[in-house]
Simulated scan of single mutants.
Amino acid sequence: MANTLPHDAVAKLFDAVPANALPQLPDYNICPTQDVAVVTQEEGRRYRPMRWGFVPVWYKKLNDGPLLINARSETVAEKPAFRKAVRERRCLVPVSGFYEWYREGDEKLPHYFHRADGEPLVMAGIWQEWGEDGLPTLAVLTTEANALMAPIHNRIPVVIERDDWGKWLGEEGHGAATLMQAPGEDVLTYHRVDKAVNSNRASGPALIEPLAA
C-alpha cells in the first residue's frame, strides 16, 4: 500500500476521533506487519492504527501460522479465523493506492493502483485484537478480479464507496455482505512502477511514479 493522506484530513472526512499515535506519513511502501490507519465503529467512529496481518485468537505467537493480510470475501463468513470479525468488527482502510504484481517468468512486475477520480481509496477490512495486550490486527477483503485487474492478478480488494461507509461499519443495520464485490471498471486505474518497490526497505515518492519507457 501507499498512503499520503494527511491524518487530520482523513479523520475529518470520516468524522472520526483520531488516536494519539498514528503511523508516520507519507509512506509509499506500507508492507505486511506494519501499521495502517483505519476507521472503526466503536460507539462512535475512531481513526486508529492497526497491524496489517490478521492474527487468529488461537495463535500463541504472531508467527504461529500464515500471515493473513487478506481475507477472501467469498468465504470470510465461514472461515473460523474470520467469521466473527466479519460480523462484528469491520473497518475501512483509506489509502492513496496499493501495489499488485504480475509474474513474468521469475520476475515480479509491480503495478500501482489508485482511484481514477483522485479521491482516497477506501478498502474493506476486518479486525480483531490479539494477545494479552490487545494488539489490533487487520486483514483486507478481496474478491475475484474485475476486467481491469484480471490481466495483472486474479484477486482485487473490495472497495467501499462513500455512500456505503456507514453500512460497512454496521451503522445502518444489515446489508454489508452486498458490498463485498469488485469495484466498477472505471473506479480504479493503474500503471507500471519500478521494481524498487519489491524491496520492503524501499521508500520515497518515486515508488508510485509511472515507469519510464
Rank of each mutant, 00 (worst) to 15 (best):
P110E: 03
M149C: 08
V57K: 15
R89W: 04
K60A: 02
L169W: 05
F113H: 14
P120Y: 02
P66V: 05
E88V: 04
G65T: 04
A145F: 03
L141I: 08
Q34T: 13
P157H: 03
F82G: 15
G44L: 02
G166P: 05
H153G: 13
R89D: 03
S73R: 03
H111F: 07
Q34G: 10
W130I: 12
R87L: 10
A150Q: 10
R115M: 02
G53F: 00
L135R: 15
L67M: 04
E104M: 14
E119D: 14
A147P: 11
W165R: 11
A37H: 03
Y28V: 02
W101P: 14
T143V: 08
T33M: 07
W165L: 10
L148I: 11
L121N: 04
R162E: 14
A124R: 05
C91Q: 11
V140H: 05
I126T: 10
D64W: 00
R51H: 02
K167L: 10
W52T: 09
K108G: 02
C31H: 12
Y59W: 11
D64V: 00
V122G: 15
V55G: 02
L169D: 10
D133I: 04
D35M: 15
G134M: 07
D117R: 08
L138K: 08
R89Q: 11
S73W: 01
P151A: 06
N70P: 01
W165H: 14
Q41H: 14
V122D: 07
E119A: 14
D35T: 13
W130H: 15
E132S: 15
Q128S: 14
E119S: 14
P157C: 07
H153C: 12
E104P: 11
T40R: 12
A116R: 12
A85D: 01
E107Y: 08
K108P: 04
R115S: 06
Y47Q: 00
E144F: 01
D133Y: 07
Q128M: 10
D133W: 06
P136G: 06
M149I: 09
V39Q: 06
K167T: 13
A150I: 01
A85K: 01
C31F: 08
V36M: 07
I126C: 12
I152K: 09
H111A: 05
R48Q: 00
D27V: 09
L109W: 11
E78N: 13
P157Q: 04
H153S: 14
K84I: 00
A81P: 01
K167M: 09
V39I: 12
P110A: 02
V57T: 12
A116L: 08
G97E: 10
G131P: 06
K60E: 04
L148D: 06
Y47S: 01
L121Y: 03
A71C: 05
I152P: 04
L169N: 12
